[in-house]
Amino acid sequence: MTALTVLLADDEPLARRRLRALLARHADYDVVAECEDGVEAVERILALRPDLVFLDIHMPELDGVAVAEALAAEAERGGAVPVLVFVTAYDAHAVRAFDLNAVDYVLKPIDVERFDRALARAGERIAARRAAVGSGDAPAADAALRAVLAELRPASTYPARFVVRDSKGLYFVRADEIDHVDADGNYVGLWARGRRHLLRETMKGIEAKLDPARFVRVHRSAIVNVDRVKRLEPWAHGEYVITMEDGARITSSRTHGTRLQELLR
């Protein structure tokens, strides 16, 4: 049988070395890449399409939660994504989220028996996915993964970057470069450096991932970076016309006006 391909994503060289050594005991797994940060992990995962990824939660540039969110979005678009096993130092909140949603994980320092159990379960999930594809069933985002990500995100730092894809390729949009956000059906538009990048996300979801000290919801379909507000003009009934540095004009709703005023004081 062809060996199953594995990618290791962890910013600690010793942790990657430990994972590689544990995998070397299993001849049916082949490590095809190692990544030191989340940005590199997303790029290599989408390029190599490994069967399995050991994903550290705490990584620079793009954390493991953001990487997993990008992969879940890829699955919803019909793309093939790997089985994920999270790697983390002990974190009571994360462990509870994993246990409640039956998403597999290993704790640092990594125990051999726990690793082998996680690997065996990952192998079963890979086999089940292959059988589903063989029967013609389209891949779908893992509901358990979505549930655990929803629990982990509030406890995580706000992501420094967002992963977006279009017909030309993959983009990493830095959060601090976002001027404003608007709604577009099942997507949101991230406006940064004069370009609009579509991200499959809800307004509520993107709002939770942006630092509330810098970003404010001014309308049910608009979020602005307060540092990029050029002018604020009173309008009718407690509403405002907001002119952004990039020239965009956005009208706030009355229900969101108070929060905007607080941040601009």
Rank of each mutant, 00 (worst) to 15 (best):
M1R: 12
T2Q: 15
A3G: 04
T5W: 08
L7N: 04
P13Q: 14
P13L: 06
D28Q: 13
Y29V: 13
Y29T: 06
D30F: 12
V31W: 12
A33L: 10
V42I: 11
I45G: 01
A47K: 15
L55K: 06
D56T: 00
D63L: 01
G64T: 07
V67N: 00
A70Y: 00
A70H: 00
E74D: 11
A75H: 04
G78P: 07
A80N: 14
F86K: 03
F86W: 07
A92V: 13
H93I: 08
A97F: 04
A102R: 15
A102E: 14
L107T: 11
P109W: 04
I110R: 02
D111K: 04
R114Q: 11
R114C: 14
F115C: 03
R117N: 15
A118P: 04
R121G: 08
G123L: 06
R125K: 11
A127G: 08
A131V: 08
A131W: 08
A131H: 12
A131Q: 15
A138E: 15
A140E: 14
R146F: 05
L149D: 06
L152F: 04
R153H: 04
R153E: 09
T157W: 05
V163K: 01
V163F: 09
V164M: 07
D166V: 09
S167N: 15
V173K: 00
A175E: 05
E177Q: 15
D179V: 14
A183V: 01
A183P: 02
D184P: 05
G189R: 09
R196Y: 11
E201D: 10
T202M: 06
R214Y: 11
R217K: 09
V218K: 00
V218G: 01
R228H: 13
R228E: 13
W235G: 06
W235S: 12
H237E: 12
M244T: 06
E245G: 06
D246T: 08
I250P: 02
T251H: 10
G257V: 05
T258V: 15
R259Y: 07
Q261F: 05
